[in-house]
Simulated scan of single mutants.
Amino acid sequence: MATARETDIGAAVSETYRKLNESLRRGVFPPGSRLPGERDLAASVGVSRSTLRQALGRLAEEGQLDRSSQRGWFVPRQMVGEPPSTLQSFSEMARARGLAPQSKILLQRVRPATFDEAQRLRVAPAARVLELRRLRSMDAVPICVDTSVIVLALAPGLADLDMTDLSLYETVERLSQIRIARSSYTVRADASDEATAALLEIQPGAPILIGEETTYSDDGTAVLTGTMSYRADAYRFEADLFRPL
Rank of each mutant, 00 (worst) to 15 (best):
A126Y: 09
A127F: 01
A127N: 03
A127W: 00
R128T: 11
R128S: 14
V129N: 02
E131D: 10
R133H: 10
R133W: 04
R134I: 13
R134L: 08
L135T: 11
S137L: 15
M138L: 14
M138D: 01
D139K: 08
D139S: 12
P142Y: 07
P142E: 03
I143N: 05
C144L: 13
C144A: 15
V145I: 14
V145L: 10
D146W: 12
D146M: 07
D146N: 11
T147C: 08
I150L: 06
I150K: 00
L152Q: 06
L152H: 02
A153K: 11
G157R: 09
G157T: 06
L158N: 03
L158H: 02
L161S: 07
M163R: 03
D165E: 12
L166W: 01
L168G: 00
L168M: 05
L168T: 12
E170A: 15
T171N: 00
V172M: 02
E173V: 07
R174E: 12
L175C: 06
S176W: 01
Q177G: 13
I178S: 02
R179N: 13
A181S: 15
A181H: 12
R182G: 07
Y185A: 06
Y185T: 12
T186S: 14
V187E: 10
R188D: 04
A189V: 06
A189M: 12
A189Y: 13
A191C: 08
D193M: 04
